[in-house]
Simulated scan of single mutants.
Amino acid sequence: MLNFDLTVEDIREPLPSFSKEQAEQKIRMAEDAWNMQNPEKISTAYSLDSQWRNRDVFLKGRAEIVSFLTAKWQKENQYRLIKELWAYSDDHIAVRFTYEWHDDQGQWYRSYGNENWAFNERGLMQARHASINDVAISEDERLFHWPLGRRPDDHQGLTELGL
């Protein structure tokens, strides 16, 4: 596994002020990263002092993000995520998303949510606010069947799937 310097803030293009195409690019980059499930790499897309609210959990900084994501994917097995643009402006992007996963007992879930993102001038996310609801589903209700990792380009998005 590659090591990432969690103390350095790189520049992450595209940079604010976002066009629609740039907002969609930022979203797909985030989706791809989360589907690869590498907490250290993911954390470098956030500012050093990034603040999160994820459901009822409040985090600050990359170390807490890494710890949170590591624990998340120990619980959420076979995780597959799709994100979609909801709205955007200068340095903010609103995203709706759905992901599917199962717990250690084999119960499948579809998690629905939205995120509000704020970016700094370096293109790093400095704030993330996520609201998420989990719905138990049967295995035959699953819609996300690609191999673990990046969602294939030809896989339907949320709108096309009726989600």
Rank of each mutant, 00 (worst) to 15 (best):
M36G: 00
L6F: 04
N116L: 10
A23C: 08
S67Y: 01
L59K: 02
K60P: 01
K26Y: 01
M36T: 11
R28D: 02
W108Q: 10
W86M: 10
D154P: 00
M1P: 04
L2E: 13
Q107C: 05
G61P: 05
E64D: 13
L15H: 06
Y46P: 01
D153H: 04
A87K: 09
V57E: 13
E9S: 12
Y88L: 04
D56A: 10
L69M: 15
T44Q: 04
D91N: 15
W146H: 06
P147M: 05
W146V: 07
E31D: 09
E24K: 08
K75M: 12
T98H: 02
Y109R: 05
Q74S: 14
D134H: 15
F144T: 04
V8H: 14
F97Q: 09
R80V: 09
Q25M: 13
F97C: 04
K20D: 10
E121W: 01
N35R: 06
Y79P: 01
D153R: 02
N116M: 10
S89M: 06
N54S: 10
W73E: 06
N54H: 09
E21A: 15
D10G: 10
D103N: 15
P16Y: 09
F68G: 02
E13T: 14
D32V: 12
S131Q: 09
A130I: 14
W101C: 12
R28P: 00
P147G: 05
E100D: 07
W101D: 06
D140C: 04
D10H: 14
N38L: 08
M36D: 13
R55C: 02
A30Q: 12
R122S: 13
K26C: 11
G106A: 10
D90L: 01
E84N: 08
E141I: 01
M1E: 09
E141V: 03
W108P: 10
D134P: 00
